[in-house]
């Protein structure tokens, strides 16, 4: 399947190693990624808050670009995904807004019609490929116990996104299970990581992260697994600030799902990616021919 790949600004420029893991995994599932000259999705918390009209028109431009290439869009960031899906819903259910946007797009020789679908990597892996097909490809089960964090914009608005049950999501856990990983239930599973208010209310944002991570820590996981670069940064870098601010001692490794998938499939090229993590975790990537790099999981602690 061929997609217009939309890594999003955060992944492309702040977590390129995570993007690399997606590009490494894709061919193993017959996913072909096409790069197009996209703008920022644009990010709802900034651009939509600034101007709803600008947000809608830029999102429509990106979708129109995919339409021109006759491709569906594959997203990797939940923020971008929610932004596209909400914009698409707005345009497809409000003909007046669609007309207004197309008047703007007409000025740059483009038109939004709504034919291209938008899918998140999570949906392609769970709904299209399926956990069973992934399980068949696993070479090295990763014996870990993790907490999954789907992220606000993977789950909500539920009626528009329709990815999983927004109060009790199970699909992400199903995806980690087939890698030999035990997903742990925890109290605040669907709670926000706080990243959305980091700019406006720094104190509250890190207090939210403290609450969320306290809940995660109660079940003593080896790592947290996410499907969004913003959540990744929030947990991985944010925990140090939480520790400094609130005197906590979080030291939780964070992985984006496709990183663990690539390691479990023994796809070469993962060593520098795992090395790029700031909080060192129990997963080591296999580098064929390098002694000592072959073990899937190191003894923890």
């Amino acid at each position: 399947m061929k997609y217009a790949f939309f890594p999003g600004c955060t992944m492309a420029y702040r977590l390129p190693f995570v993007e690399k893991s997606i590009r490494l995994v894709a061919p193993h599932f017959n996913i072909e990624l096409v790069d197009l000259p996209f703008t920022c999705c644009p990010e709802p918390n900034s651009v939509r808050s600034f101007s709803d009209e600008t947000w809608l028109a830029l999102a429509a431009r990106n979708l129109a670009l995919a339409e021109k290439s006759k491709l569906d869009v594959l997203t990797a960031c939940t923020g971008c995904h929610e932004s596209f899906m909400t914009a698409k819903h707005e345009l497809d259910t409000h003909p007046d807004r669609k007309d207004a946007v197309n008047e703007v797009l007409g000025e740059i020789g483009m038109e939004y019609t709504g034919v291209s679908a938008v899918k998140h990597m999570h949906q392609v892996l769970f709904d299209d490929i399926g956990p069973e097909a992934i399980a068949e490809k696993v070479k090295r089960p990763l014996e870990l116990r993790v907490v999954t964090h789907s992220g606000c914009h993977m789950l909500r608005p539920e009626a528009i996104l329709q990815i999983d049950d927004c109060e009790a999501p199970v699909k992400f856990d199903g995806l980690v299970e087939v890698l030999g990983i035990e997903p742990l239930e925890y109290m605040d599973k669907t709670m926000c990581c706080g990243t959305g208010t980091r700019r406006a209310n720094r104190e509250a944002s890190f207090a939210i992260l403290r609450e969320k991570m306290t809940s995660m820590k109660m079940v003593n996981p080896d790592a947290a697994v996410v499907f969004c670069p913003s959540c990744f940064i929030s947990f991985e870098s944010g925990q140090r600030i939480v520790n400094k601010t609130f005197g906590t001692d979080f030291k939780l490794p964070v992985y984006y799902y496709t990183e663990l998938l690539a390691v479990a499939l023994e796809i070469p090229g993962m060593v520098p990616i795992i090395k790029a993590h700031r909080v060192k975790g129990p997963v080591t990537a296999s580098a064929p021919g390098v002694p000592g790099e072959g073990r899937p999981v190191e003894a923890k602690n």
């Binding site: 606000c152 909500r156 959305g196 509250a204």
Partner: peptide, 12 residues
């Protein structure tokens, strides 16, 4: 209003 994290739990 800027403190809202846009998590969408309220409207859900």
């Amino acid at each position: 209003e800027w403190s809202c994290a846009y998590c969408l739990m309220c409207e859900q």
